[in-house]
Amino acid sequence: MEKIRLSKLMSEQGLCSRREADDFIAKGWVKVDGEIVSELGTKVLPTQKITLEKAAQAKQQGRVTILLNKPVGYVSGQAEEGHKPAILLLDAATRWEQDTAPHRFHRSQLLGLAPAGRLDIDSTGLLVLTQDGRIAKQLIGEDSPIEKEYLVRVQGKLVGNGLNLLNHGLSLDGKKLKPAKVSWQNEDQLRFILNEGKKRQIRRMCEMVGLKVTALKRVRIGKVRLGDLPQGQWRYLRADETF
């Protein structure tokens, strides 16, 4: 059995992100088979037992995850081409008044807060921003099984077997898309449930079957729903919620 880097194994086991793993190792907060390992680059066997010290667990518990109902006109991540990033919407005034989480908002919560998945500038709905590497990996990891659900308003005429193709049979950028669940909600709105998130995927899929997207809203990620959260407002992910 081949040894692998401890930080990589910690990330694969969902203990934390690789960056966090290096930080925890350097601080002496990681044990392998009960022994503290503090040297970066250490390799271990996949069968060895990894545990985090209480200090590392406390640091993780202090990290926040924020759910934002993103409006049109904001980009998910870094500012680009003069467009504002969604993080600028986060302050005490825009917190949803019905948020029941016990956290008090302070600016330090914006440090290291990053979007876990994209929502393009023309789209609205649920955007997750997190300080927690475990949640980021869960949502945007290569093999993430977590579903994302969208309501999509369209114009145009669907080609003959277009609905079947949307469900399975299209390729983007030379790669076959994973099976999706796509169904009509009403005469001009589709519901998409996807297990992947290629750039502008839904818009490009629709164009391939004769439809033009006029509005796109993400309403669910895994078990977490957008619900009644008003556009432009946000709330904390509660301790009893998981994706």
Rank of each mutant, 00 (worst) to 15 (best):
residue 99 D to L: 10
residue 206 C to P: 09
residue 76 S to V: 09
residue 31 K to H: 00
residue 138 Q to A: 15
residue 46 P to N: 07
residue 134 R to N: 03
residue 67 L to E: 10
residue 16 C to I: 10
residue 37 V to D: 00
residue 56 A to R: 07
residue 221 I to C: 14
residue 164 N to P: 04
residue 8 K to G: 02
residue 158 L to M: 14
residue 223 K to C: 07
residue 241 E to G: 13
residue 80 E to Y: 01
residue 67 L to C: 13
residue 177 L to A: 13
residue 122 D to F: 13
residue 182 V to F: 05
residue 85 P to G: 04
residue 115 P to R: 10
residue 20 E to S: 13
residue 84 K to F: 08
residue 42 T to G: 01
residue 124 T to G: 09
residue 102 P to N: 08
residue 206 C to N: 12
residue 140 I to Q: 13
residue 189 Q to F: 05
residue 198 K to T: 11
residue 102 P to Y: 08
residue 198 K to D: 10
residue 188 D to P: 08
residue 140 I to P: 12
residue 90 L to P: 04
residue 185 Q to D: 08
residue 153 R to E: 09
residue 37 V to R: 15
residue 205 M to G: 06
residue 96 W to I: 03
residue 94 T to H: 10
residue 192 F to M: 05
residue 136 A to Y: 02
residue 38 S to L: 02
residue 117 G to W: 13
residue 4 I to W: 03
residue 147 E to C: 01
residue 127 L to A: 13
residue 206 C to F: 11
residue 163 L to K: 11
residue 68 L to G: 10
residue 21 A to G: 12
residue 155 Q to C: 07
residue 190 L to P: 05
residue 196 E to F: 12
residue 5 R to V: 03
residue 69 N to W: 02
residue 230 P to K: 01
residue 158 L to F: 12
residue 110 L to S: 06
residue 19 R to Y: 03
residue 92 A to G: 08
residue 37 V to L: 13
residue 219 V to P: 01
residue 229 L to Q: 10
residue 229 L to E: 08
residue 188 D to L: 08
residue 192 F to K: 05
residue 110 L to Q: 05
residue 117 G to I: 07
residue 173 D to E: 15
residue 156 G to R: 07
residue 66 I to H: 03
residue 70 K to M: 05
residue 22 D to Y: 01
residue 212 K to Q: 15
residue 86 A to T: 04
residue 146 I to P: 02
residue 159 V to A: 12
residue 45 L to M: 13
residue 111 L to E: 15
residue 125 G to K: 02
residue 226 L to I: 06
residue 65 T to D: 06
residue 35 E to F: 07
residue 19 R to D: 00
residue 87 I to K: 14
residue 33 D to T: 03
residue 5 R to S: 00
residue 68 L to C: 06
residue 96 W to F: 11
residue 226 L to N: 02
residue 9 L to S: 03
residue 158 L to W: 12
residue 170 L to P: 13
residue 66 I to V: 15
residue 31 K to S: 01
residue 2 E to Q: 12
residue 87 I to F: 11
residue 24 F to A: 00
residue 182 V to W: 04
residue 108 S to Y: 04
residue 201 Q to P: 08
residue 37 V to E: 07
